[in-house]
Design a protein around this nucleic acid. Structure first.
Lengths: 229, 229
DNA sequence: ACAAAAGTGTTTGGGATACACCCATGG
DNA sequence: CCATGGGTGTATCCCAAACACTTTTGT
């Protein structure tokens, strides 16, 4: 930090972009919008926005996410800051990217229409503007890494969920298949799920027990890291 | 990203800061400098600098690191971007932090004097300016995480090193002790070290075999992730 | 009655852990 | 000859992986 340099950075703009993940019961998806202004009008893109003077990057990411989805208190985490010189063709913009996990059911059809937004399966994302495809790839890697040892999967599911739903979620994230007996054994052995006396009967005649994530029990494990998969 | 917003971000400056790790054979250390200008003149601080118009954040971090250490081609990775409103008391500055791993022997005493720099044990870092202590804490966490599954430890050692040196390095990073038999077994079983016909005889009468990290063998393991500890 | 998904238990193998003695050499 | 750190092998345990049948109930 050179002594005279407190006025050096000019004309570099700062943006945030949000990689928003959802899970529809079968596949992991990302939420994209059709860009409504130049440059790159009409192309698919992540939702983003410029950082304002009096907000932190976290604030800005939450603002952008709230604007697009109407949701607050969403699980969100900083991913990476992208600063390639020509990443935005219109100006020098560096972007602080965040990834968010939401319950897809809480994102209304109405909101989708309002913002020309659409869910795309993670393996079937179209060509996006700038470096947004790279951002999504990086976000998927981070999601895979974190979800193996932290209780994030639940953020993508409704509050009440079944073990098979959770298993299919992990199968989608890792593009693999998991033995349902071993999965159930391991997940329940963590001792952080609470079984309700209700069943979910949409997807089978027998019905599957609903569970909730037990934050209290999880927080009692001071280890911080578990092995979900 | 609102349509009219390409001129919104003004007066927000962008800096980079480097958390530079070294290992002296006994403890993990970080390199700090005595700040030579206001604000916070004379306080200990991470090495940093402002982002210039025509460089990426990675370029800037490398520039700063090279300026302080004279080193190039150092292992460096983006850590996190810090954007709290009052993190820098003189202006609105967001900082993109990087962590770097260097062989402490390649950093000369001369360079230390020139920059009023000093190595501090990671568990004995003084109070630093701004949010730099937070940055170091976060960097240590990331180092712990990555070093468990990626071949980064070697970056902190000379090209030729002994297994006991490597073990003590891991012990320092994790603040734990490791069984030397089990450690040697596991590390060698990874098949990525090449034993030389040389011994290091500084630290024992018998002498310990020197090894080098075998990049070729490592790259042949397409898994990308290993289990070092 | 049958189709479709839920739920459950046992066996096996491999990696992690625990643990103690001999080796080489400089002083 | 002895003190110091380097190097090695084995027994045990636990967790992960593989694997198939019964239950429930809507149609």
């Amino acid at each position: 930090m050179a002594a005279d340099s407190y006025h050096q950075t000019s004309k570099i703009q700062i943006a945030v972009d949000c990689i928003i993940f959802g899970f529809d019961g079968a596949a992991l998806k990302v939420l994209l919008i059709k860009r409504g202004f130049e440059p790159e009008f009409g192309k698919w893109s992540l939702m983003g926005g410029f950082l304002m003077k009096n907000e932190t990057a976290e604030d800005a990411a939450n603002r952008v996410l709230h604007f697009l989805t109407g949701l607050k208190d969403v699980y969100m985490e900083q991913l990476h800051t992208f600063s390639a010189l020509n990443r935005d063709c219109a100006a020098r913009v560096i972007s602080i990217a965040y990834f968010a996990l939401i319950d897809i059911n809480e994102y209304s059809e109405q909101m989708q229409r309002d913002h020309e937004a659409k869910w795309f399966p993670i393996d079937d994302v179209p060509g996006l503007i700038f470096d947004h495809n790279l951002m999504i790839a990086k976000a998927r890697d981070l999601l895979r890494m974190k979800v193996a040892s932290h209780p994030l999967g639940f953020e993508l599911l409704p509050e009440k969920f079944t073990i098979p739903q959770l298993r299919i979620l992990y199968e989608s994230i890792y593009a693999t298949t998991l033995d349902k007996r071993n999965f159930q054994k391991k997940i329940l052995s963590l001792g952080i799920l609470h079984r309700l006396d209700e069943k979910e009967k949409e997807s089978s005649k027998k019905g599957a027990f609903l569970y909730v994530f037990d934050h209290v029990k999880y927080n009692r494990l001071q280890s911080g890291e578990l092995k979900f998969i």
